[in-house]
């Protein structure tokens, strides 16, 4: 199975993504990209939507990609991937190509939750065989931390500022994974860089499906979230342990929970180390709001347990 060593050995044979990028110190996205690309054995073609990953990895005249790589615009990573996949199928039918090639689209939460949603929805509905990976860092970090559909309630961003009248983002984040599940595609999963083995296993499962697959990966952003750069993995791990970001997969409509924390930590443990939530604790603690956030997390978790037909207190 794809543990750290297996991924590293795969990378030794062929480097698909290299260090020639300008992503910030401690960025979570390259960790996710490495894990995804190294979990796939077959040759890959990568499509990237506009975002930190695209901007920082392809500064002219350099590139960090050592695989065929394509970028068109912010909104159409999924549409481009489906076009490539269709062309590939035609070439195979005509006998021009015989190689098994896999197609992976990377996009941030802006390019998936908001701007690229209709392209993604169309590509999933048409049933192209490709893997879409959403690197969810919960805001438009590329342009300096503006709110997106993925930004959680009460998070401070430049377009959802904190002041006397406001407490950051007022709305709750949308549940994109569930929207994708509604497309009835063969494989949908939620993963995190905080659990590597789980992420790599999910990529392997997703890439072997004969149809579209989608993985929503939480990747932390030290600059936007406001934590130390060495805490990137720890913070995403805390999101799993507090059940804010549960790990689950949906195969052909069957929900499976991949990880149940031994002790469900209060969501405060995840909020407190991040500066974007600092106003919840200083100058005085906003207990009412914290209680509401905890209620949201609890309700979502209960619903997920019901979906996966697991009783509370069980372990996987």
């Amino acid at each position: 199975m794809p543990n750290t060593k297996v991924l590293a050995i795969r990378e030794e044979r062929e480097k698909r993504f290299t260090g020639a990028h300008a992503l910030c110190a401690g960025c979570g996205t390259p960790i996710a990209v490495r894990a995804v690309l190294n979990a796939i054995e077959e040759p890959v073609v990568v499509v990237t939507a506009t975002g930190c990953l695209e901007v920082a990895t392809t500064r002219y005249p350099t590139t960090a990609w050592n695989v065929p790589w394509l970028h068109v615009a912010f909104e159409n990573a999924a549409a481009v991937a489906s076009g490539i996949e269709s062309a590939y199928r035609v070439l195979r039918r005509r006998g021009v190509l015989s190689k098994e090639i896999r197609f992976v689209a990377f996009a941030g939460d802006g390019g998936t939750y908001d701007i690229g949603l209709q392209a993604l929805s169309g590509a999933l509905e048409r049933g192209h065989r490709f893997l879409y990976v959403c690197c969810d860092n919960e805001a438009y970090m590329n342009t300096g931390n503006q709110r997106s559909g993925a930004t959680p309630i009460a998070a401070q961003t430049t377009t959802a500022p904190v002041g006397e009248e406001s407490f950051g983002k007022i709305q709750r984040r949308k549940d994109l994974t569930e929207i994708v599940v509604a497309h009835r595609i063969p494989y949908v999963a939620q993963a995190s860089i905080g659990d590597w083995y789980d992420l790599a296993s999910k990529v392997r499962k997703a890439i072997s499906q004969d149809g579209p697959s989608f993985i929503n990966v939480m990747t932390s952003c030290p600059r936007g979230w406001g934590h130390d750069s060495n805490q990137t993995v720890k913070i995403t791990r805390l999101a799993i342990e507090t059940c804010f970001w549960p790990l689950f997969e949906v195969e052909d409509g069957r929900w499976t929970l991949n990880y149940i924390p031994e002790e469900k930590l209060p969501v405060e443990m995840w909020l407190r180390p991040q500066k974007r939530f600092a106003h919840l604790f200083e100058p005085q603690e906003k207990t009412e709001l914290l209680r509401e956030i905890q209620k949201h997390v609890d309700r979502d978790w209960e619903r997920l347990l019901q979906r996966c037909e697991v009783s509370a207190g069980a372990s996987v």
């Binding site: 750290t4 991924l7 590293a8 260090g19 992503l23 110190a25 960025c27 390259p30 960790i31």
Partner: peptide, 12 residues
């Protein structure tokens, strides 16, 4: 164990 290798965002 290669954890440092696979966690390093910059291949250092």
């Amino acid at each position: 164990c290669r954890i440092c290798e696979m966690r390093c965002p910059d291949f250092a």
